[in-house]
Amino acid sequence: MTQAEPLVDIRGLNKYFGHNHVLRDIDFSVARGEVVCVIGPSGSGKSTLLRCVNMLETPQSGTVRVNGRELTDPDCDIDAARRQIGMVFQQFNLFPHHNALDNCTLALTTVLKNKREVAERIARENLERVGLADKLDAYPARLSGGQQQRVAIARALSMDPALMLFDEPTSALDPELVGEVLSVMRRLAAEGMTMIVVTHEIAFAREVADRVVFMDGGGIVEQGPPATLLSAPRAARTRDFLKRVLVPVAD
């Protein structure tokens, strides 16, 4: 796995919000085709780390390389780099003034300058892929949370990205809608998509991830295959966190 150049390579990353040191000297890389789940308590910096991968947050120091491009280089064409990185948000962030199909075609026509017919074909394929072939004309407000998040995944996939980022994709969903989104993500992982998933779904991480990263206090505490990290964590902080997450009702 380590001989080829990693798809994502982050070195010495530091991020501050004011005086708050959110990311401390992070080294982190992801191989092509790898599925990495990032877990950790809220405020641990896991979402910020994810948002640094496509430069939605600008780090104060360190380098971020994705697919051979250095995004932290001031001369980097950040818009071009982002086309290869799909992102799915906790709050879906669908465009409310466009229907499901146009949410997917918009970037295809405006950014990639695809013809309308081509864009629609790609969008339709991807909406079918997430099981929403019958919702092409629906506006986001008419869709359930689970359906909205699937449209958001289809929107990101329409750009044919090399990497998909998921920022707590199921945290805003009603419990009964979590399954449909996770099953789309599971299929995506099986198809070989490179994915970084910030999540609280430990069961999903255990089943789908190639590697689980536990973050706390702005740093990576430990990482490893899910079977090892989730069942036999080495660090005390990881054990504490997992105990709290897996047995939430016990006190």
Binding site: M87, F89, N93, V111, M159
Partner: peptide
């Protein structure tokens, strides 16, 4: 307009 809208647009590669 929520900030997430711009973030979604920029993460799709829009300028």
């Amino acid at each position: 307009v929520p900030r997430g809208q711009i973030e979604a647009a920029r993460s799709l590669g829009m300028s």
